[in-house]
């Protein structure tokens, strides 16, 4: 079985993470890392490999030369080989152009039975690249996969996380799976894996290598443009109940909760 995992290198976004999530200090001076949500895709691929004779995992990423670190992290966890799509003409790609480049490379690399992607990248956050690759390769896309129930005989059965529950879907292979956090707990690479990754040569492919020209890649090949980036403003309509008269305050609170049907 041949498996591909798509991974993206993202900023380790210390500031955002420090303020909003963990509040902890900078621990690693590295400012980029493997998209945390792609770790789940890598882990799931490795789990399949461990259960399947002769399975092999190729990690594919489009990015600048230093994105090789993200690929090596995935190899250290247990993937076999890596391909970095790196070329000046890939710069500024939107989700469609990114998927176009990834698809072209995947076609060049031969047939894959399974392609994994993360749910979304923590920087771009569109969640479009995985399904878009599936569309361009004309294969089924199984999104938000939270569990693989069964795999073999040219088909796969998965559970998809949907609002209010799970949906069980059967599909033919090859297929693309984008996975959610609930699917597993990603392993931490060990020293042996790290050393192996360091010694593994990552194949670099350019636009010419994947058979694309600059008109279909990067900024020029992108049908969409990011015109403006902004944070949606949040406002709260707070009501402050005067607490000087406790009985009155309790009445007002109760009335409020009743109105909102919260009690």
């Amino acid at each position: 079985m041949r498996i591909a995992v798509l991974v993206k290198q993202v900023p380790a976004s210390d500031k955002v993470k420090m303020d909003e999530e963990t509040g902890t200090m900078v621990r690693s001076a590295l400012d980029a890392e493997l998209n945390p949500l792609d770790l789940y895709a890598v882990e799931e691929a490795i789990r399949i490999k461990e259960k399947t004779n002769g399975a092999e995992i190729t990690v594919v990423s489009m990015g600048p030369p230093r994105a090789v670190d993200a690929i090596k992290e995935a190899i250290a966890m247990g993937c076999d080989s890596g391909v970095l799509l790196s070329d000046k003409v890939f710069g500024g790609a939107d989700t469609w152009a990114t998927a176009r480049t990834l698809s072209a490379a995947l076609e060049k690399l031969g047939t894959f039975d399974l392609i994994f992607s993360g749910e979304r990248a923590t920087d771009g956050e569109t969640g479009q690249v995985g399904p878009s690759v599936a569309a361009q390769l004309d294969m089924p896309a199984l999104t938000y996969v939270s569990k693989i129930r069964q795999i073999g005989d040219g088909k796969i059965v998965v559970e998809r996380a949907i609002e209010g529950g799970h949906e069980v879907v059967e599909s033919s292979l090859p297929a693309l799976l984008s996975v959610v956090k609930e699917i597993n707990e990603p392993r931490m690479p060990n020293l042996t894996g790290k050393i192996r990754a360091r010694k593994t040569e990552v194949l670099t492919m350019t636009a010419a290598d994947v058979g694309l020209d600059s008109s279909t890649t990067g900024l020029t090949g992108s049908p969409t443009r990011v015109v403006k980036v902004f944070y949606p403003s949040m406002s709260r309509n707070g009501t402050i109940v005067d607490g000087r008269d406790p009985d009155d305050a309790v009445q007002k609170l109760l009335q409020f909760l009743n109105e909102k049907a919260l009690v």
Binding site: A12, R27, S28, L30, P189, N190, L191, K194
Partner: peptide, 26 residues
């Protein structure tokens, strides 16, 4: 890491990304 393995460690795990490091330190 190699020295630890020689001294009887079960394995040596390497947290080189922020995500992994935070998981351990948490």
């Amino acid at each position: 890491g190699t020295a630890c393995l020689d001294m009887g460690a079960l394995d040596v795990f390497v947290a080189s990304t922020k995500t992994e490091s935070e998981k351990v330190w948490k």
